[in-house]
Amino acid sequence: MSMRQSLTAVLERGATLTGSFATEPYEAAWAAEARWFVRTLAPPPDGARLLVHAQVSPDGLHWCDLDEPRPVDAALVSWTSVRFGGWLRLAGTLEPGGTRSAETTVHIYLALKS
């Protein structure tokens, strides 16, 4: 078995998120494994909550959900995606809760391995 390929992409760097968002599309057809990391630099205000989910696409243009929304409720949150085909992106919503307007600042990493 030859040595496996790996590539970690920083899809968002210090991004300030509000409302609904999606990362830029990322091509991952060569990879068999994908692991997401969301690192929170500035958490949302109390009562607000960031929910994210992986999305897949046949063409990088049209997207559907791969998994259920999960909360980003720690300084560093990680999970995997499998059987994702050729494209991945991370979509999500910052629910403001009782706050009038909420924002949070994060890094989003995608670690891929063949």
């Binding site: 390929q5 590539l7 990322y26 091509e27 057809a29 990088g60 243009l61 494209w87």
Partner: peptide, 11 residues
């Protein structure tokens, strides 16, 4: 932006 290993995939 991170470079991608692309299969040149189109709709």
């Amino acid at each position: 932006r991170p470079p991608q290993l692309s299969s040149c995939n189109f709709f």
